[in-house]
């Protein structure tokens, strides 16, 4: 029941995000959306994910977006969107297809569902002996699927280099000639 309440809050937040034009409010609503997601993760027993979502999703992303707003503009122009109808149609059709796809999924919380009976019993039963940690999520993340985590750090490294390449040096170079001309005139 609490899951549905939180999902209802999330739907209301999304309606706000779509309708509100002030980008500062939109960014704050996005932070709320992530935080509500984190609350749902706690209810669904994914405590590690909830920590990460609250810190990284609701915290760091919001700060990054606020920084972007400071460097660009705060207000969305109120010209009506030309793609509202086509966007709505695409979303509707995709949504119907996805819902059709859920029809033969195992129902929520079903212990017999296939994903609980493949490799996971081994993780839960053997990880105390093989890895020696009580937290199974940590065991899988750092040991059984350690290469995934290594790849993740490569992705973050690449993204950091990308951000530096896009706005770090280029901007300083670009500003310099302008500053000089301003000083000259």
């Amino acid at each position: 029941m609490i899951v549905f309440t939180l999902l209802g809050f999330m739907c209301a937040t999304v309606v706000g995000i779509i309708r509100i034009r002030d980008l500062f409010s939109v960014v704050m609503l996005t932070g709320m959306f992530s935080l509500l997601g984190a609350a749902i993760y706690v209810v669904m027993d994914a405590v590690d994910v909830a920590f990460t979502e609250a810190a990284v999703g609701a915290g760091v992303s919001t700060v990054l977006m606020l920084g972007t707003l400071a460097l660009t503009s705060r207000e969305e122009k109120t010209t009506g969107s030309s793609r509202a109808v086509s966007g709505g149609l695409i979303a509707l059709v995709t949504g119907v297809i996805l819902i059709y796809g859920t029809l033969d999924m195992p129902s929520y919380g079903d212990p017999q569902s296939p994903i609980h009976n493949h490799v996971v019993p081994r993780y839960i039963n053997q990880s105390p002996n093989e890895v020696g940690l009580p937290n199974v999520v940590t065991s899988v993340l750092a040991s059984y699927r350690g290469y995934d985590t290594l790849g993740e750090t490569f992705v973050i490294f690449t993204a950091a280099i990308g951000v530096i390449a896009i706005i770090g040096r280029g901007r300083r170079r670009r500003k310099k000639p302008e500053d000089q001309t301003e000083a000259d005139t």
Partner: peptide, 15 residues
């Protein structure tokens, strides 16, 4: 799908 709709229909890049 509301996320997808925002990506397609809104003109503002931050949004």
């Amino acid at each position: 799908m509301s996320g997808l709709y925002i990506v397609i229909a809104q003109n503002n890049l931050v949004k």
